[in-house]
Design a protein around this nucleic acid. Structure first.
Length: 423
RNA sequence: GGAGGGAUGCCUGAGUGGCCGAAAGGAACAGUUUGCUAAACUGUCGUACUGGCAACGGUACCGAGGGUUCGAAUCCCUCUUCCUCCGCCA
């Protein structure tokens, strides 16, 4: 959520930045400024009246203590009109605040200067490409055939007990999952992240804090009976750990990592591009979250991007890094890098990580601040990134590493899997 | 699930209707003193909105939301959460 004061003082800039996103309702900005103006006027009037009421009450108290009952009664008579007006203004103020809030949550984050304008994924900027496409043998097949052939992931079985998009991992398939999770967590820990285990369900306030609510209500599974949401990413619980927290400046940066299953409803669409592991309702992911000093956040974004790339390199995957254009970026992000790996059998890029700087967009909602040496509290910046999301990594490994003699796993995984091929 | 007791500032903890944005102690920060450290002493020490160029003001907040009252940390209602006991349970 953007800060009203910032919008008020930087109207032109806000509009200009929103256009980079191709934001459809720029009129919302002026609407916000108008409501805020009204809100402040109401607040001022209310404050003045409250001050009068407070001083009357104080006088009455004084008189009562001195036994001057009649004088006290006389003042009491005068308070009722004021009281009525205070009630009215409070209601007005509450209404204005609510309106303002409703308008504010509809505004996405402002893209950073480096973000290219654009609408479609085709307009994303490829900033780096590593490696070259794996050359496959005659008769190479997509991963959903490999998983069946080696009996390592069973999609039908998952459909039976839960539904489409809930695969069952079996034998070496299950072991590979566990190996990747451990590998990613170990690397993150070596890189200075603290490993956390967090709830897989969150309340409404948490969903709001990181920006999933109210915007993406439909994307999350909602346990209505207890009003809890299944997390779509560990970003939600891990970042919300710091909701309503004022950190000391020297505590920054805060670096946490967590492995969690992630749940996404992603209603609709079936077909080849969502087949197999490409898109699931439940999947595993290791997530990184950092809370940093505002001056550091873009350096940290680069650092996180490089870290994710180091994992991809170690897995021997052909990948590229995209800087997302304004139109393709998430609602809450100021700048995002997507990492895509090449799926040799599907002949397409698969998104396996997304690293974003949210600047103060989340921290303003979270009331996550730090106190500087000057004693002033300021909003911190948050960043997060997947490192990594498992299914598509698994898909790419299976496809790119397939040989007529079986799937030859990347060397770094051997220590974690206890085997080096699936056959 | 049942019964009872709590929730106050960074922490401990006082406060049962006005003099309370809140005692006291501790922690922290700054200064004085000091061979160094410590102690002692002095000062500072919540968040947000808002008025003002500023100096300096106003308002709100004692778990959350309502209510009673001229006036609520204090009384009433609802909710959340923690603790103790009982029941159930991986």
């Amino acid at each position: 959520m953007l800060q009203v004061n910032y919008i008020r003082e930087n109207r032109e800039k806000v509009l200009e930045r929103l256009s980079v996103r191709n934001f459809k309702q720029p009129e919302l900005v002026d609407e916000i400024i108008r409501i805020d103006e009204e809100r402040r006027q109401t607040q001022t009037s209310l404050d003045n009246l409250s001050a009068i009421a407070n001083s009357s009450a104080k006088q009455i108290g004084e008189l009562m203590r001195n036994g001057k009952k009649e004088e006290a009664e006389a003042i009491k008579q005068t308070t009722s009109a004021n009281k009525e007006q205070i009630k009215q203004l409070s209601e007005q103020l509450a209404a204005a605040e609510q309106q303002l809030h409703q308008a504010l949550v509809q505004l996405p984050n402002l893209p950073a200067e480096a973000v290219p304008s654009g609408i479609t994924p085709e307009e994303n900027e490829v900033v780096y490409t590593h490696g070259s496409p794996a050359v496959l043998h005659e008769g190479a097949v997509p991963h959903w055939e490999l998983t069946a052939k080696y009996d390592i992931i069973d999609f039908e079985l998952g459909t039976k007990i839960a539904g489409a998009g809930f695969p069952v991992y079996k034998g070496k398939g299950a072991r590979l999952q566990r190996a990747l999770i451990n590998f990613f967590l170990d690397r993150a820990t070596e890189s200075g992240y603290r490993e956390m285990q967090v709830p897989l369900m969150v309340n409404e306030a948490s969903g709001f804090g990181t920006g999933q609510l109210p915007d993406k209500e439909g994307q999350m599974y909602h346990v209505t009976e207890d009003n809890l949401y299944l997390i779509p990413t560990a970003e939600v619980p891990v970042t919300n750990l710091y909701r309503d927290v004022i950190l000391k400046e020297e505590d920054l940066p805060v670096k946490n990592t967590a492995y969690t299953p992630c749940f996404r409803r992603e209603a609709g669409s079936y077909g080849a591009h969502v087949r197999g592991l490409n898109r699931l309702h439940q999947f595993d992911k290791v997530e990184l979250v950092q809370i940093v000093h505002p001056e550091q956040s873009y350096a940290v974004l680069e650092e996180m991007s490089l870290y994710v790339q180091s994992l991809l390199k170690d897995l021997g995957l052909h990948y590229r890094v995209l800087r997302l254009c304004g139109g393709d970026m998430g609602f809450t992000s100021a700048m995002t890098y997507d990492m895509e790996v090449w799926s040799a059998a599907q002949q397409r890029w698969l998104e396996v990580s997304s690293v974003s700087n949210f600047e103060t967009y989340q921290t303003n909602r979270l009331k996550l601040r730090y106190k500087g040496h000057t004693g002033k509290t300021q909003l911190a910046h948050t960043l997060n990134g997947s490192a990594l999301a498992l299914p598509r990594i698994v898909a790419a490994i299976l496809e790119n590493c397939q040989t007529p003699e079986g799937i030859v796993l990347p060397e770094v995984l051997a220590a974690y899997t206890g085997f080096d091929r699936i056959d």
